[in-house]
C-alpha cells in the first residue's frame, strides 16, 4: 500500500492549512506525524480519507486517485476526533455493525480488546467519558483489519495505564500483522521509541521527512562553562542554546564529534527536544 500526496494544498478562509505538501506513506512502518496544534496534521489525514477535498494536488494509493474511490478507501481506517455513529448506539452494537459493514473487521479481536481496556459494551457511545471515547475508537481502529491505519491523536484523554496498554497492543498488532500505521500525536516522548519514520509538519508545510534515527543523528548537544561553549559553537549551525548561571547547553546540527575541548560534554538530541527546537526555528 503506497499512499502518495503530490503538491496538496488546502485553505480554510484565511488559513493555509496545507501548502504544497508532498509526502509518501509507502511501507509497512510506524510513521510519526508530528506538528504543533494547527500545523495541518488532521487536515492531511482527512484529505487522505476523502473527508475533505483538497483545493489542489493529487492523493493516490498505488497510483490510483483515492478521492471517492471505495476500493482504496476500504483499505484505510482513520481514527479521528469525529465519530460517525448514531447517538443512541451502544458500543457493543457498533462492534456488531462494524463486522457487518467491514469485511476485514475482526469482531473477536474487538471483544478481546474491549475486555483488556475494560470498555463497557452496553453503554451508549455518546455517554462514554473522554478517555473511554478514545478507547472505543482505538478498539474499532485496531480491529478494523485495514492495511493502513491513520491514528489522529489516539491517546487523547487516556490515563497513563491505558496509554501504556495502547502502545503494547499497537506493537502486538503490528508484529502479528505488519501494516502501515501513521500516528499523529503531541506526546512525542512517549512514542519516540515506536516511531520508525518521522514526518514533521509546520504551518502546513513538511519540514522534515526522514527515519527517526537519522534525524537524531543529525545533531548533538554540547554543554559546559558558558565561555567554552560560546567559543566552541562559533561558526557552527546552532539550533538552540540555553544557559543556567555560568553553564550553557547548545544544540548543534551536524555529526557528533568524537573529541571535544577539555571541559565540554556532548550529548545526543532526543526526539522531543529536537522537535521543540525545530518548531522554535524561524520559518
Amino acid at each position: 500500500m503506497r499512499i502518495e500526496l503530490k503538491n496538496v494544498s488546502k485553505r480554510f478562509g484565511q488559513t493555509q492549512a496545507l501548502d504544497s505538501v508532498n509526502v509518501v506513506f509507502g511501507e509497512q512502518k510506524i510513521y510519526g506525524l508530528l506538528g504543533n496544534n494547527g500545523a495541518g496534521k488532521s487536515t492531511m489525514l482527512n484529505i487522505i480519507t476523502s473527508r475533505y477535498l483538497a483545493d489542489s494536488g493529487e492523493v493516490a494509493m498505488n497510483g490510483q486517485p483515492i478521492f471517492d474511490n471505495d476500493a482504496c478507501l476500504n483499505q484505510i481506517y482513520l481514527l479521528s476526533e469525529k465519530s460517525f455513529y448514531p447517538d443512541s448506539m451502544k458500543t457493543g452494537e457498533a462492534i456488531k455493525w462494524a463486522a457487518i459493514f467491514y469485511p476485514s473487521f475482526d469482531r473477536n479481536l474487538a471483544h478481546q480488546l474491549a475486555e483488556r481496556f475494560n470498555l463497557p459494551l452496553k453503554k451508549k457511545i455518546t455517554a462514554l467519558s473522554t478517555g473511554y471515547a478514545s478507547i472505543f475508537k482505538i478498539v474499532m481502529a485496531l480491529s478494523s483489519g485495514a492495511p493502513v491505519l491513520l491514528l489522529d491523536e489516539p491517546v487523547l484523554g487516556l490515563d497513563a495505564g491505558h496509554r501504556d496498554l495502547f502502545y503494547k497492543i499497537l506493537i502486538e498488532r503490528y508484529s502479528e500483522n505488519p501494516c502501515t500505521i501513521v500516528i499523529s500525536t503531541h506526546l512525542i516522548a512517549e512514542v519516540a521509541g515506536l516511531i520508525e519514520h518521522c514526518v514533521i509538519i509546520k504551518n502546513g508545510r513538511i519540514v522534515k521527512d526522514a527515519p527517526a534515527q537519522d534525524l537524531l543523528a543529525g545533531g548533538y548537544t554540547v554543554s559546559g562553562p558558558a565561555g567554552l561553549v560560546d567559543e566552541y559553537i562559533r561558526g557552527k549551525r546552532v539550533l538552540s542554546q540555553s544557559g543556567l548561571g555560568g553553564l550553557k547547553t547548545a544544540s548543534l546540527s551536524g555529526e557528533r564529534p568524537n573529541e571535544l575541548p577539555q571541559g565540554l560534554e556532548s550529548g545526543r538530541l532526543n526526539l522531543q527536544e529536537y522537535f521543540i527546537e525545530l518548531m522554535n526555528e524561524e520559518a
Binding site: 503494547k168 506493537i171 520508525e196
Partner: peptide
C-alpha cells in the same frame, strides 16, 4: 523485546 520496552520491532 519490543513489547516489554515499547519500542518499534525494527529497532
Amino acid at each position: 523485546i519490543s513489547l516489554s520496552y515499547k519500542i518499534n520491532p525494527a529497532t
